[in-house]
């Protein structure tokens, strides 16, 4: 199961790298979004997937699922959600002001 997940995460990272390196504004934002999914899955996978037990450490528990990564990934997802929302608004505003979604045209300095 872990091996399968690692491949899935690898594909997510590859796709997001491709998207971030493109010149279209919306694709870059999507790329960052996919990268965050990859990172979150990586966290869940690396700390061990389902072991068939509840996330409780009872007095006599033989096996248990580590609850910490789930709590942390939940926090990270919430943060990522907020940042994505902000990034979309900023991208839209930039598109409105510059009238382009091409990063090649979002260059140059103020003073020339």
């Amino acid at each position: 199961m872990e091996v399968l997940m690692i491949f899935a995460i690898g594909i997510l990272f590859t796709v997001s790298t491709y998207l971030i390196l493109t010149k279209s504004l919306l694709r870059v934002v999507l790329g960052v979004l996919i990268l965050s999914h990859g990172a979150h899955l990586l966290f869940l996978t690396l700390s061990g997937l389902k072991t068939g037990a509840p996330p409780l450490l009872g007095e006599e528990a033989g096996s248990y699922t580590d609850p910490l990564p789930q709590a942390l990934v939940l926090t990270a997802i919430v943060i990522g959600f907020g940042i994505t929302a902000f990034m979309l608004v900023l991208a839209y505003r930039t598109y409105k002001v510059h009238e382009t979604d091409n990063f090649d045209e979002l260059r140059g300095s103020d003073d020339d």
């Binding site: 990859g38 990172a39 979150h40 990586l42 990270a76 990034m87 930039t94 979002l106």
Partner: peptide, 21 residues
């Protein structure tokens, strides 16, 4: 400002994702 802060946001977010990794 918009053009540069967009780049700032994207670069910092990408590095934050690597922080999680």
């Amino acid at each position: 400002q918009l053009q540069e802060s967009l780049k700032y946001v994207i670069i910092n977010t990408v590095s934050s994702m690597f922080f999680i990794a």
